[in-house]
Design a protein around this nucleic acid. Sequence first.
RNA 1: GCGCCCAUAGCUCAGCUGGAUAGAGCGUUGGACUACGAAUCCAAAGGUCGCAAGUUCGAGUCUUGCUGGGCGCACCA
Length: 553
Amino acid sequence: MKDKVEISLRSTVDELTQTGDLPELSDYSTSVSIPTNKDFGDFSTNVAMIVASKAKKSPKEIAGRIIRSLERRNDMFEKVEMAGPGFINMTLKPAVWARALSEITDLGKDFGRTAHGAGRKVQVEFVSANPTGPLHIGHGRGAAVGDTLVRILDAAGFDVQAEYYINDIGNQMNNLGLSVLHRYKEIHGREEPFPESGYKGDYIRDIAHELMTIHQDGLLSRDHDEAVKICQEYAAGSIMQGIREDLRLFNVRFDRFFNESSLYHDHKVAESLDYLRLKVLSYEDDGALWFRTSAFGDEKDRVLRKQDGSLTYFAPDIAYHKDKLDRGFEKIIDIWGADHHGYVPRMKAAIAAMGADKDCFHALLIQLVSLVRDGRPVQMSTRAGEFVTLREIIDEVGKDVARYFFMMRRCDAQLVFDLDLAKKKSDENPVYYIQYAHARICSIIRNAADQGISPSLNGTDLQLLASGDDLALIKILASCPDIVAAAATELEPHRIAFYLLDVATAFHRFYNRNRVISDDPALTRARLVLVDAVRQVIANTLALMGIDAPESM
RNA sequence: GCGCCCAUAGCUCAGCUGGAUAGAGCGUUGGACUACGAAUCCAAAGGUCGCAAGUUCGAGUCUUGCUGGGCGCACCA
């Protein structure tokens, strides 16, 4: 709805500029917002003050001209007033709101979708956990945020792809193989010192046992490196399969899993290094190969190839991001743990070096998740293999609650996951509060159906809902597409979680003060359409978060 | 030492790109079911938006400097 107001306002201002009633301004940013104070109308804009300050004119005079012009196009506004230092407050006609409601009914599942993204290609890369162990709770937050963001971007009209980058090569994979082989030998009674920086989790033992049933003691007689390789490949495959299963249970979808190793097979890494050398952006020093990232705003240059001849993690990562650019993504979004923030300037430098605008790259940094049980923090340490897995969380509180909890903070704020609260099936738990609203509406609709009435626009007079609680509810519903679009452009998926809470609150309030099914047939029909629209909006936005909308609970 | 993030009601947090009188939930106090699901609702109390300057018509929001907390500063990934 804000969209429509903005469009109307902008065309009015443009028109006034053309007729010379307003000074010419090459660029101005309008801001239409919903005022906190209801007395100020449905929407408010400061455009007159912006224009006035640039043109050095009186804001009130500018506002006056805009208002007179807006009033002349009388299809939309009930009332347009000047307020304060030059605000323009606008109140829409009830018919406009009634139309907005019928639009929700017409669009159904598609309500909330917009064309903001104009089909631009966007990629979101997230989770990307190494296949060295199961997903833990930190990955869970990244998975929930990433998957929700993908759905939001899709709804906002972007052509979005979800990708998982698998580090299936390198030191960590080698350590994985060593760790598994060690456990394998241990089962066969061979005690050796545990490999340095090996993985100690119990799942390593499980994998060693699986290898034993496949190979019996056959690996013992193999060449060491060969045995490590067999262990590594089997373990990575097994763990990756587990990760995919975790993601499926968590309702997280990926369009593509990208193997780091393919960058080597396809010579992409070598090509990237050649490119940098050609552009004189890399140089040899002290036996290593350096990338001149400092030329692009990084605080110092970074190593691409170490003294020992092996490549750093950064080298293939440059090739990977070059590949993303080559695939035509206009916006590249990487979701990382906040502890990787130091890596951002480096990556932006790489993007810029490839000749792309470095602002097309967005690193969404996800802050730490800590876990609280019985009011006490739960200690976790990945290195020691002591961590709470995502699977454990899903099993304990359910997929829906877990996904919502991960979404109810801004990404850049630390999150305390309260297991006790998550398991409470009461009003304190926002997930149940929201799902309850949905179930309650479904119940009302069932009751109405028993009386032979179902929600339908046919012959229903929505003007009956033009005031009070009914109108307030419609206004919140109508803002859904604006919220989704804003969440997409600002990359702030948590806004959906808060919006849902607003919708549920507004509905519960409405429900307690008004009857849907009453002895007034016309009002009953109208309100059935209204609550059905509430149900639709709740279902649609829950779907954006990958959460189910139960018909009863 | 340098950099990034955070600081808003007793607690946990929103705050729509700089707008008008800063909002929710929990907790506290008091109320509402013999009609559509009380897993709900209503009301009250609760604030120097960490501190101090600056930018301007206007700052919780932007700038700078402090204070406090988290996280980084590898020829690890």
